[in-house]
Design a binder for these strands. Structure first.
Ligand code: MN
Ligand code: MN
Ligand code: MN
Ligand code: MN
Lengths: 223, 223
DNA sequence: TTTAAGTTCCAGGCAAACCTAATGATCATT
DNA sequence: AATGATCATTAGGTTTGCCTGGAACTTAAA
């Protein structure tokens, strides 16, 4: 019984998935409502419906949690989103701050062959233009141990930028302005106790200052 | 006042456009209903709404006709549909019988830059994989004087296949089976008075027989 | 010209996805 | 333990896009 799933339902599943990844605790209806810019009352109705369809387990006490089928669907939508973002940047000359909105539309296109062929065209990429991991066709996420730059304690540490935790146009354009791109080497020169701002050197260029807020949103890996 | 347009509305406009191209007379509500597989009563409601939005002129006597804005929108959707079909065939190894359904979804994606860049990636194609003309960014259709093969009267006439009037999987796969592709040269060898079936030679290969029904759906040009 | 067939329209309904306002439940403080 | 504050749910509505059934037109045939 192949039950149809709507754009709206897919967006709920994706939201629940990402809230579960970051918050680790109970998923509040209110946080779903805020993320989707809708009313909490609407969320309650939809969660009941998704529960009925066995895509989530839901009750007032424990909140919402994806079932295996729900998680598989969420990962499929995320896979499509990130593959399309990669396509837009790598093949259609989009910049990384322009692609999210369009991918929000493209992620709902239904065609298994389309995803498969797109993946192949792009050379089976493991990460999207923001450094986010792309689930493979079985929903498996590539491993990568990243941490926010702000957590670096030792001046002199060398790291590599592998992702961003903030996808807003404002932040991405700021990174463009300071000429910081994915895979750039970053050397932490100094850490100011006072506001935890940092002096960093990008790709051996002149050192610059960044706020702790910026450092919090830069995901890096060792080496 | 940039009023939003829904998928459904776009599909009505596209349908009205294509009915206007082929029928030349009044567009019956019933024919819209049949093409979209919906109830005639629903069509009446939507036509009133589109009239209200100034996308069509509509009244009971004259039926529906696109306004300039309505036609521009219809052409934009058609442009997207045909560009996406071209992308799927030329870049993602789809066959020409597989692409229509997916393009029905992709044609509704909203992003001017996306269309522009896709067009560029594909080398500004003038015709899609079925030989249908692709409107340019100003809604201008490339000219081509085509006629159905069935209208050829003289045996010995040489023509070139430039399009198909029937897009069903069954027909397209039949063409694949007889190894007839777009741009192939076709020589009409014989025309049977009785049922108007034809003996034709494709690309100088062995001659074969085709029914008048097939010949009616092959769009050709001279030379 | 009357009848029949075809087409369009109206009235009334339904489901999906949203809303507001008000009520219930839970949690944190005092 | 009482009191607010916060969060979730219920009840009642709206809009969009669809439906059915029947009435009203229009067109063509008898
Ligand atoms: Mn994104
Ligand atoms: Mn991304
Ligand atoms: Mn098509
Ligand atoms: Mn086509």
């Amino acid at each position: 019984m192949e039950q149809a799933i709507s754009f709206t339902e897919e967006n709920y599943l994706k939201t629940i998935y990402s809230l579960a990844r970051q918050d680790k605790g109970k998923i509040a209806n209110l946080s779903i409502a805020e993320k989707l810019h809708i009313n909490p009352a609407t969320v309650t109705e939809m969660l009941k419906k998704l529960n009925e369809k066995n895509l989530i387990d839901y009750n007032r006490i424990d909140g919402a949690a994806l079932t295996p089928q729900g998680e598989a669907l969420a990962l499929k939508v995320i896979r499509k989103h990130r593959l399309w973002e990669t396509f837009l940047v790598n093949r259609l000359s989009f910049t990384w701050d322009e692609v999210h909105e369009i991918a929000e539309q493209l992620e709902h296109i239904q065609s298994d062959k389309l995803i498969r062929q797109l993946d192949k065209l792009l050379g089976f990429p493991k990460f999207d233009p923001h450094g986010d991991p792309i689930p493979d066709k079985n929903g498996q996420l590539p491993q990568s141990q990243t941490f926010p730059l702000v957590s670096v304690e030792e001046p002199g540490t060398m790291v590599k930028l592998v992702g961003v935790a903030n996808h807003t146009t404002a932040f991405l354009q700021y990174l463009d302005k300071i000429k910081l791109s994915l895979n750039d080497k970053i050397e932490v020169k100094e850490i100011h106790e006072f506001d935890h701002s940092m002096g960093i050197r990008i790709a051996n260029r002149t050192a610059i200052m960044i706020s702790s807020e910026v450092a919090r949103n830069l995901l890096v890996s060792n080496q």
